[in-house]
């Protein structure tokens, strides 16, 4: 993985307001809840909690999307 990520980072470069070019890493996403491979009852509300960060952009600038392998794209995700 590390080997694969590095070339990708090298290809993506952005120009800042100062006119300087810098490297733009993708946002970091980590799912905190529910636990991987847990189960929930049918019909019950699922509280999804994730930690998202980005090296240059504030969180509000990030666009979040949630998809299910069974149900497809789920409802828009909002920050809390």
């Amino acid at each position: 993985m590390r080997t694969a990520v590095v070339p990708l980072l090298a290809l993506i470069a952005c120009t800042g307001d100062d006119g300087l070019s810098y490297r733009n890493d993708p946002p970091a996403v980590a799912l905190l809840a529910p636990l991987d491979h847990s189960a929930v009852p049918f019909g019950g509300a699922v509280h999804l909690e994730a930690a998202v960060s980005d090296d240059h952009d504030p969180n509000e600038a990030l666009v979040l999307s949630l998809a299910s392998s069974r149900d497809g794209t789920l409802a828009p995700v909002t920050w809390t």
Binding site: P26, A28, V52, S68
Partner: peptide, 14 residues
């Protein structure tokens, strides 16, 4: 399999 994707304004996503 729930997948949460975050995309920055530059199109980079994680």
């Amino acid at each position: 399999t729930l997948t949460l994707t975050a995309t920055d304004p530059d199109g980079a996503s994680g």
